[in-house]
């Protein structure tokens, strides 16, 4: 008797998030129908599902790929620039003093505000969108990686110096691996930002992409289709995030917090 109760509780624990989610969907569906909320204000879940079928698979694919492509390129560019930049900032006081104010100024600039300028300057290709994504993504990676590189225990630096190893070895063998937990955190945070960057860029100028599609669909009051695009964006963000988590699990399991191993 007691065992059965405990098992039921265990099942409830495991499926509680899914149940809550399904409950919310049902509430949404029923609420919209009961209060007769117009579709162009808030479509019901069933209308969103129907909305997915109003466009062909190929069209969804084209828009999804356009956004994923820009987000990925901007993200990779940000990683390629940020990590060496963080290494430079921690290696030389002069470089840190010279570059840091510039980085902060770039970060303080509202990217949404300069996005139209960037589009005018860089023309109508993927390039302006990738640059906008890059600008939104790179700052947290630089800051967090720098913090990680500076968090190396002093003793290990002294050990390195006592072995008369040069600075590049110190960076490669001690500081960078020590910063990996920080770097992976930064990479996880930035996945969401990369998708945000791509969408913002598409709002400003694009002929395809999920951000573009949302603007396009809402202007024709096809809110249910916008919701489909939104779901695709959320899924993209989650997939990016999970991929980085997987990468960390494979490449550097030791850098995960104990609870996640």
């Amino acid at each position: 008797m007691e065992r059965a109760a405990r098992r039921a509780l265990g099942l409830l624990n495991r499926f509680a998030p899914a149940l809550a989610f399904i409950g919310l969907l049902i509430l949404w569906e029923v609420g919209c129908r009961v209060f007769k909320v117009p579709t162009f204000l808030l479509p019901t879940p069933s209308m969103i599902v129907a909305g997915a079928r109003e466009q062909t698979f190929a069209i969804w694919g084209t828009h999804l790929w356009a956004t994923v492509r820009v987000a990925l390129m901007g993200y990779l560019a940000a990683i390629c620039v940020s990590i060496p930049l963080a290494v430079a900032l921690t290696s030389s006081k002069l470089l840190a003093r010279t570059l840091y104010p510039m980085i902060v100024v770039v970060h303080s600039t509202p990217i949404v505000a300069i996005a139209p300028i960037i589009v005018v300057t860089l023309g109508a290709s993927d390039l302006p969108r990738v640059v906008i994504t890059f600008l939104i993504t790179f700052f947290p990676i630089v800051v967090t990686t720098t913090t990680g590189l500076l968090s190396t225990p002093e003793e290990l630096i002294e050990l390195s110096r006592s072995l008369r190893a040069d600075r590049s070895r110190e960076m490669l063998n001690i500081r960078l691996p020590y910063a990996l937990p920080y770097i992976f955190s930064a990479l996880k945070i930035s996945t969401t930002l990369a998708v945000v960057g791509a969408v913002v860029a598409e709002f400003v100028a694009a002929e395809q992409g999920l951000g573009y599609f949302i603007q396009f669909a809402t202007s024709f009051f096809k809110i249910n289709q916008s919701f489909v695009a939104l779901i695709l964006l959320v899924t993209t963000s989650l997939a990016f995030f999970q991929f980085i988590g997987l990468l960390q699990r494979i490449l550097a399991p030791w850098s995960l917090p104990k609870s996640e191993r």
Binding site: L156, S162, R164, I174, Y178
Partner: peptide
Amino acid sequence: PRDDIGIVFQRPTLLPWFDVLGNVTFPFRH
């Protein structure tokens, strides 16, 4: 710094990405 000096620090400060053997051989590798 000289080659004929070994240092033991207050905190062990081992490297979490190496196993025990990797930590002991670290000075040579480094």
